[in-house]
């Protein structure tokens, strides 16, 4: 226990018997369902948050597996059919000498998704019980995960652009593979998982820890 709970002890809307609106920052008496200012739904702490995080996380992972096994791009050049998976496409780019672009694609479609699965699972596990982690760092992790998730879509868009441009009948045709759909779904599901996470819970357990500890 690193005692941060005491230093950052701030009165929350919940403790003051109020419920704060995450859309417009207005506070209302506890028990209010819709915000009087913006009409958004109010909930002091999202009770179903963890269930939804894990549900989206799981379907995201389920979609991510076929996304890596099946081909992303189907290239037809004069009678030859070539298919490339996500990682295959990266290797191909590297062979062309485009290391920078290969790096971007690798980062967006391998590192980010895998990192996201780990980070979301880590956050969702840790805030359940009282924990001694610095909330500032957890929030940073959460914000990075939430912000970076959408960038995984790069590869899906690349496939879309290639498929739209390269349609020269017999000479060369590029078509999207099944993995493109799976990957897009996986990105959407993990984005939903990250959004379902209630960031206010990061501090709740910290507070409880400091209350329990004799200090």
């Amino acid at each position: 226990m690193d005692g941060t709970g005491h230093r950052i002890a701030a009165l929350t809307a919940r403790e003051a018997g109020l419920v704060g609106c995450q859309h417009c920052t207005r506070v209302s008496p506890m028990g209010t369902r819709t915000c009087t200012r913006c009409g958004g739904s109010l909930e002091s702490r999202d009770r179903t948050s963890m269930q939804r995080v894990w549900a989206w996380w799981l379907v995201g992972l389920m979609a991510y597996i076929p996304a890596n096994l099946y081909p992303m791009l189907l290239t037809r050049t004069v009678g030859q059919v070539q298919d490339a998976t996500i990682v295959g496409g990266v290797i191909e780019l590297a062979h062309h000498g485009a290391y920078g672009v290969a790096g971007i694609v690798f980062f967006a479609s391998v590192i980010i998704p895998v990192g996201k699965f780990i980070a979301i699972a880590y956050l969702a596990t840790i805030v359940r019980r009282p924990h001694g982690h610095k909330p500032g760092q957890l929030l940073h992790l959460y914000e990075v995960v939430e912000w970076i998730g959408r960038w995984s879509m790069i590869d899906v868009f690349v496939v879309a652009i290639l498929a739209a441009l390269v349609q020269f009948n017999l000479l060369a045709t590029i078509n999207p593979g099944v993995a493109a759909v799976c990957f897009a779904l996986s990105v959407v599901f993990t984005m939903l998982a990250a959004m379902s996470f209630d960031s206010r819970r990061i501090w709740d357990q910290i507070r409880q820890t400091s209350d329990e500890s004799p200090a």
């Binding site: 929350t12 809307a13 704060g20 859309h23």
Partner: peptide, 16 residues
Amino acid sequence: MAPSEDLVCCPVCDAL
């Protein structure tokens, strides 16, 4: 505590 227009909650961590 009574809600008022001067009271604002942090949308991220709920601090008043």
